[in-house]
Amino acid sequence: MKKDNQPIIMFDGICNVCNHWVQFVIKRDPKGIFKFLSLQSDLACSLITDHNLNNKQLDSIILIDKDQIYTESTAILHIINKLTGPIRFFVLFWVIPEKIRDKVYRFIAKNRYRFFGKKKVVSFLVKKYKIGLLKRKQKVGKPMNRSTFLKKLRMTIITTFRWSLALTFLIYGIAKIYPGQFSTGDFIYDSTKDSAMQLAWHFFGYSDTYNLFIAFGEITAALLLVIPKTATLGNIIYLPITVNITILDFCFEIPARSVTTLLTCMSIALLFFEYKKLKRVFFDWPVAAETSLPTNLIKKKVNVQ
């Protein structure tokens, strides 16, 4: 097969969430960097043979870029890094260990049909182009005015921050439950050899109940942040947790302190975006309506029998 330097995204053509992901990428790839290929197409079979892909890799989004093969969460992050717009904020997830990222990805991939459903036939995206490689149509629209641009920018920032915060806590919350984030077992601390981080990790790993309590708080805040109507409540729960984690990271010299500092700043920024709403809830007391009787009332005589 003739080699092509253009990155190719291979996806499950009957998977609903995979097809939504493809459409999501196409909208944020105006230069047409990527080509897309369904795993059910004949062309995909040739690429699978050429690159010796195994069954485990085929149960994932696959990115082929300059003869390099990327799968699972790493493929997603490489794709996001080439897109345009605020979605690129999600490349910050590189700081999360690959094992943790991939465990969450595998859980979603394994249950993708159960959670999101599947198509009876290969997506129209593939049927439309017989060879399986998708093209794009550039949309020409009217230039938006400044007010509309600022509103869209504000909503984009809020949505990006919400999802970044939610996904980070969701990943770490699940990791605390399985396979476990902290160290367990007997530990004798030696200040001349052991780091402060080791001490903190054994402290948090000592009690399973406390570990589950932290995980429950992080997952609850994450789920509330994902839902627009409960996002403000989720962020109110989120902020004290991430502030506490940030202080611990600095005090115990945990390398993730740069990430937790960023998460704290994003959480605070979301509160500022919701300032008017929070002000109405916590500071503005409802004003009692003043009613006054008209002075020119008509007097009527009432006969009581």
Rank of each mutant, 00 (worst) to 15 (best):
T148D: 14
V281F: 11
V17I: 15
I64K: 08
A222F: 08
F149R: 10
T74M: 12
F36P: 04
L248V: 15
E98N: 05
I26G: 08
L212T: 01
I48S: 07
N111K: 11
A256I: 14
I64D: 13
L239C: 03
S191M: 08
D186V: 09
G85I: 00
F204I: 10
I227T: 14
A269T: 12
G185S: 10
A75E: 06
C265M: 14
N296C: 03
K56I: 06
K118L: 03
V91M: 11
V302T: 10
D29G: 09
K229H: 13
V122A: 10
P255L: 00
C265L: 15
S60P: 09
P30R: 11
G180I: 00
L39N: 06
V126Q: 13
P294R: 07
I131H: 15
E72S: 05
A44M: 04
A196C: 00
F34G: 05
K118F: 04
A196N: 10
G185I: 05
K128C: 00
C45G: 07
I237Q: 07
T168P: 05
I188W: 13
D208Q: 11
T220A: 11
C18F: 04
G180M: 01
Q6R: 15
G180N: 06
H78T: 08
F213A: 11
K301T: 09
P97M: 00
A256D: 05
D194G: 01
G173A: 09
L37V: 01
L233C: 09
M197F: 11
I79Q: 03
V22Q: 05
L53I: 02
K120S: 12
L125A: 03
D67K: 12
F252T: 06
K276R: 14
F182G: 02
A196H: 08
V259R: 01
A166M: 04
T291K: 10
K135F: 02
I241K: 00
T160A: 15
D186H: 13
I48W: 07
G141M: 03
E274H: 13
S60K: 07
M144E: 13
Y70H: 15
T242E: 06
Q23R: 15
T159E: 13
L199I: 10
K193D: 01
W285G: 00
C15K: 01
T74L: 15
K151D: 13
H20W: 12
I177P: 09
I108R: 09
K27F: 06
A231K: 08
N52L: 07
K301W: 06
D67H: 11
L150C: 01
A166F: 02
K31Y: 14
F93I: 01
K3D: 13
R280N: 11
R106G: 04
I171S: 13
G32Q: 08
T159I: 02
L39C: 04
P294S: 03
I245L: 09
M1N: 11
L83D: 08
N111L: 07
K110A: 04
